[in-house]
């Protein structure tokens, strides 16, 4: 009897420990709100789409708008991993594809789009001469993309819906692989027959003789679309508008810098990509590359992803998923929709 009393006392202690430890972070959060943070934690991945971040960092463009701002970088391997870091409260701002952002938004992560990053050619490559459309992929072929729910996976689903009648038609031959691994595998004609990827990996693949594009992102989506968006937490926007604005302005200035001065940008970016300056310049000025901060295709992605069952809800207006600076850049024309509003959707 005595022993069981001790047992229940221990259980009670355990329970109270759980509840007190849950109360502690809440108190810490409250304290953090009072003192404005001058640290901005930015999550990014690897590729040409993130070039504006590197330029802004190298040229101190964030600090230009908020002196003393400390930027902490977090390099992650996929939008899914960024979602997890955001939920864990380790990130204020993240740059990612529109689909993983929408998955997070659908599940209630409090964040919105703070800026577009770039429009770029994404594409599916193969080395097999007999594959010219999606229908030519057999059950033993494998198509690599970085992760389920990534923009590459969603674009492949869009193309599959167009060409094969079902968005999930190719899910059985899809395989998740990191960009560099999959690019190496494709160029060595090993394991995979297709790779849906983004710059610089598709540029590298296409530079090798014998590799050709099966379908590109614009064909799949139906029109131009934004590849990456910068996403900020509601908390940052509410509690630290200065840091938020410095980030948005830094991205805008860096994007303009790359478009206006590709030569200088290539010199800055080359070491971080492990490429020489000439190749970097070639990639930066590849047809279709555009560092543009007004996002395109936000609603097109969410409509498709809801129809295909990847997310449950869709935003009624862009303002549900984007901050006012972005909504204003798109505009809201009285009467019929303006051009930029129409470009948020896929063409009929």
């Amino acid at each position: 009897m005595k022993r069981s009393i001790i047992f229940f006392v221990l259980i009670a202690l355990l329970l109270s420990a759980c509840s007190s430890s849950t109360a502690a972070p809440a108190a810490a959060e409250a304290a953090a709100i009072d003192a404005p943070v001058t640290t901005l934690r930015v999550a990014q991945q690897f590729g040409l789409g993130y070039a504006a971040l590197t330029i802004a960092d190298e040229l101190n463009l964030f600090e230009k708008y908020l002196p003393g701002l400390q930027v902490e970088w977090l390099q992650l391997g996929s939008g899914g991993a960024i979602n997890e870091a955001f939920i864990a409260g380790e990130v204020d701002v993240a740059v990612m594809g529109i689909p993983p952002f929408l998955i997070g938004w659908d599940k209630g992560i409090p964040w919105r789009v703070a800026s577009g990053m770039c429009v770029m050619p994404l594409s599916l490559q193969t080395y097999k001469d007999n594959i010219n459309s999606l229908a030519d992929f057999g059950p033993d072929d494998k198509i690599a993309y970085p992760a389920p729910g990534s923009i590459q996976h969603i674009l492949l689903s869009m193309a599959a819906e167009r060409q094969l009648g079902s968005p999930t038609a190719l899910d059985d031959i899809g395989v998740a692989m990191a960009h560099p691994d999959a690019a190496a595998a494709l160029m060595n004609q090993k394991d995979i027959s297709g790779h849906f990827t983004s710059p610089p990996y598709n540029f590298q693949e296409l530079s090798q003789a014998g590799i050709h594009t099966v379908v590109d992102g614009t064909e799949a989506f139906g029109t131009e679309f934004t590849f990456l968006v910068a996403v900020a937490s509601e908390e940052l926007y509410e509690n630290n508008p200065q840091a938020y604005s410095a980030f948005v302005m830094g991205i805008a200035e860096a994007s303009d810098y790359i478009n206006q001065h590709p030569q200088e940008a290539a010199a800055i970016l080359a070491p971080s990509f492990g490429l020489d300056e000439e190749t970097t310049l070639k990639y930066l000025t590849w047809p279709g590359m555009n560092y543009v901060t007004t996002p395109l295709g936000l609603m097109g992605f969410s409509d498709f992803m809801q129809n295909a069952g990847y997310i449950e809800k869709v935003p009624e207006t862009v303002s549900e998923i984007a901050f006012p600076n972005v909504v204003a850049a798109i505009g809201q024309q009285s009467g019929t929709s303006g051009e930029l509003e129409t470009l948020q959707f896929r063409p009929e």
């Binding site: 759980c18 509840s19 849950t22 109360a23 864990a88 599940k107 209630g108």
Partner: peptide, 12 residues
Amino acid sequence: YIVSTGNYSELI
């Protein structure tokens, strides 16, 4: 019980 304290999001 820990869930019901509401300190953790449903995602965690």
